[in-house]
Design a binder for these strands. Structure first.
Lengths: 161, 161
DNA sequence: CTAATATAGACCTTTGTTGTCCATAATAAA
DNA sequence: TTTATTATGGACAACAAAGGTCTATATTAG
């Protein structure tokens, strides 16, 4: 259970774009150089980000990428979901097993309340809780928040000197 | 980014064992039947759990598995770490890239304080935070807590009838 | 001794990740 | 219009991990 390298690349690329706002578009060459990733692979990732509306891209001379919306509206969760997909963090495989059915039977009291969950097993319930917590946290962190932090560190350093 | 089926199997198996405490050991056949997983594959998983001290196993006639410690001392995190391994949730691949180095440079003020983190990049910092939150949550849920919940549901149902 | 049970290793198949390469489309500048 | 530059999409390959089977071996109760 680990985030893929692609997610790593995507996040770093977006931070680079965020940092280069106001300037022109950033080409794949520059990005590739900054991150130390091959152009061909990185361009795949950038395409995905474009398809999901995270960045805009223009072909041709002086083309390149830019953020499709302000950096404080691009959360870590957004990026991760584009790259890793939106499947659940955890799913029970054998929903028809005895074990699962035992843990999935809900009292009538709970079934009455209009909960859309149908037959969620108790293990899934815990794990879905984990997923929610994780998403919550990842939503609170944006490309901008990283840039801010970097700026703080930087100015701190300057003050020292 | 998903938990493996093995983790699913392991959690369900442990819940079965927790539920069968006081009785004799539970053999792989019974477990396999309850979970709907092949004996051979499940036994691999059980072996891992034994090696890491989550369960005890006895060979021979009437042998089988039992929890190695009380169910309220076996957390979801314990189980997940045995099965999924203990690598970090996220690691930057190109720690020597320009991007990474920029984000990793810490102000002297922070370096002075005895933090063991050496050159943690800001992306890693956010993601390590996510990991901590996740671990925190997973540590708060145990095999026992699922059993308790199941019991609650069950008695609820009985009351209704 | 025998039947039942767990263990460990070899092996295989499927799937996902990481990556390259090439043909094509779009665009700015000459 | 042509050319150089840039992004896009598809095909493909190498590799690793997950999921799963089978067999030989060790252990133990009866």
């Amino acid at each position: 259970m680990q985030f893929s390298k692609s997610t790593d690349y995507a996040l770093h690329a977006l931070i680079h774009l965020g940092h280069s706002e106001r300037c022109n578009n950033v080409g794949i060459k520059e990005l590739s150089g900054a991150l130390g990733v091959s152009e061909s692979y990185l361009s795949k990732i950038m395409s995905k980000l474009r398809q999901d509306g995270i960045v805009r891209a223009v072909s041709g001379v002086n083309g390149g990428y830019e953020l499709a919306r302000p950096a404080d509206q691009i959360t870590f969760l957004d990026v991760i979901q584009v790259i890793e997909g939106r499947q659940q963090l955890f799913e029970c495989s054998n929903s028809s097993s005895r074990q699962h059915r035992l843990l999935a039977e809900e009292g009538a009291a709970q079934r009455d309340q209009n909960r859309p969950r149908k037959n969620e097993c108790l293990v899934e319930k815990v794990m879905n809780g984990a997923e929610q917590h994780l998403h919550q946290y990842l939503q609170e962190h944006t490309i901008q928040s990283v840039l801010d932090e970097a700026f703080k560190r930087c100015s701190h350093e300057v003050n020292k000197k």
